[in-house]
Design a protein around this nucleic acid. Sequence first.
DNA 1: CCTATGACAGACA
DNA 2: GTGTCTGCCATAG
Length: 122
Amino acid sequence: MVESPFTRNVRAAIRAIPRGRVATYAQVAALAGNHRAVRGVVWILHSSSEAEHLPWHRVINSRGTISLRRGSGFEEQRRRLIAEGVVISPRGRIDLARFGWERQKKKSAAFSRAAARFLEEV
DNA sequence: CCTATGACAGACA
DNA sequence: GTGTCTGCCATAG
């Protein structure tokens, strides 16, 4: 199968998430060039995170929680994140303000520049 | 072309 | 906080 630019960008974006930080699906989609392709990101993670050796555990949902279900990767993702120093509350929440990649609640000029730079490299 | 799937996001009651 | 609904998209068959 031919890798679409989007797929490549998504994988690159995921690989670019710093250790000890997390990114949301939406954030990855945005970096990949299409902020609305969240479902596409989901599909890619679901289908090839393993084969591509992606740091998939650094991708969580916008609520700051792990989307995987218990028994289906949840434990492993939590374990990996904790191993990287990410703090997860007893209720399973991760403070995006502290561990989110480019911690920001809105768009920042810095983030936009980073995204642009990123897309050029890919 | 059409339908189903998938680890979502955001708005709203 | 919860539950529901809609929007959106890449990919596979």
